[in-house]
Each structure stands twice: as C-alpha cells, then as structure tokens.
C-alpha cells in the first residue's frame, strides 16, 4: 500500500517529522528499520474481550474481514506471547485489576488499543456505579477506536494505525524499558507479588 494513501494521521506525521529531524546513525537506522519492519508486520493480539466488541473482533477474524491478511490472526491466549491487547468491551471495577495484570504480563514491546466507547470513556454506561470511565487511567493506550461497537473495518484501521506507529519507533535507545526488574518493582509495587 503506497504510503501517501495513508497520510491521514497528523499525530503520526508529526512524530515522524520530529524523529527525522534529529537524524540517526546509518547502521543503527537501518537496523531499526529492519526491526520495525518485523514488529509492525507481526502484531499478534491477545485473546481478550469482555463484551459486544469482542464479537466484532471474532467477525474480524472471519472470512469477510480476514485479519489474517495482515498477519494478525495469531491470537495468543497467553499474554506473555502477545504483542498488543485489544481492550474490546467495558472494563468494570472488578475487571480493572485483572486487565492491569494482563497488561503487566505482556512482554515488551506491548501496545494497547482501546476499542469501543466503553473502553474509551465508559460509553453508554457513563452513569454507572461499577464501570471504569475509560481505560486510560488503568493502562497506557496507543490507539483509540470509537464506535459501539466499532465496525470491523474500523478495527482494521485502528490496528493499521498501531502498525504505523510502531514503524517510527526506535529500538536502540528508544522505547524499550531501561529499568531493571528490581527498580521497576520498587517504583511500581504490586501487592502480593513482593514476597
């Protein structure tokens, strides 16, 4: 797909510009390109769905929308092996720790797509006593896909945006976690795991 056809996301364009301005070493830059090519073309989802959006995610895998074309069909049930988490559905108080834990269990580099209005802001359940109003307070979100539920086409577009975002990342000295495990746990204490 020609890149120009996709020049519709100002945020990513400005990100690319900023990165290009600073300039990169030739070797490191080439390696980065190779790694980013691999990463952006191989984003495996975690099988994670709570409600209606999850069913549209199933449709996304089916013949009509066929996400396998892009290589996204390798849905892993274990978070350790997945690359991104599609938060498809409402996240309620009781589910929030579970979702956070799943996010923590994802191996770096990891991404989150907030899919559907419930995951973005609470959606139709804004007035509820038991719904987290948007998952941004719980996990960092890379891409928001609006809709109730979003159509599969919208989901494809959302994951493609994620793919483009990955393409402009830097592997060397960039996004990856620099902290050692002990430091990380000191800064982010998880109850019950410190023993």
């Amino acid at each position: 797909m020609p890149y120009e056809a996709w020049k519709d996301n100002e945020y990513i364009e400005s990100l690319v510009k900023e990165l290009q301005d600073s300039g990169t070493n030739v070797i490191v830059g080439t390696l980065d390109n190779l790694i980013n090519w691999g990463r952006s073309n191989s984003i495996w989802p975690l099988t994670f769905a709570t409600s209606c959006c999850g069913i549209e995610f199933v449709s996304l895998g089916a013949a009509r929308y066929d996400m396998a074309r892009f290589g996204w069909e390798v849905a892993r049930a274990s978070p350790r092996q997945a690359d991104f988490m599609m938060v498809a559905g409402t996240i309620v108080h009781r589910m929030a720790p579970v979702m956070r834990r799943l996010y923590d269990q994802l191996a770096e580099p990891k991404y989150v797509i907030a899919c559907g209005s419930c995951a973005i802001s609470g959606g139709p359940f804004k007035k509820s006593y038991h719904v987290a109003m948007g998952i941004e307070d719980i996990v960092p979100v890379d891409v928001f896909v609006p809709g109730c539920p979003p159509r599969p086409e919208a989901m494809i577009y959302g994951i493609m945006q994620l793919s483009r975002k990955i393409k402009v990342e830097k592997f060397f000295g960039g996004v990856n976690r620099q902290e050692k495990q002990e430091e990380f746990l000191k800064n982010h204490p998880v109850p019950g795991v410190n023993d």
Binding site: H93, R94, A96, P97, V98, M99, R100, R101, Y129, H130, A132, D137, I138, V139, H188, P189, V190, P191, G192
Partner: peptide, 17 residues
C-alpha cells in the same frame, strides 16, 4: 439511598481483588 460517590468505591487497578 445508595451513595454513588466514586470516592467510596474507586477503581483500583493496582490492588488485587
């Protein structure tokens, strides 16, 4: 007469259930 104040029952993603 339920008190729906979110401060009473906050979302606590970092605490295990």
């Amino acid at each position: 007469d339920y008190d729906a104040d979110p401060k009473l029952n906050p979302v606590a993603p970092f605490e295990n259930e």
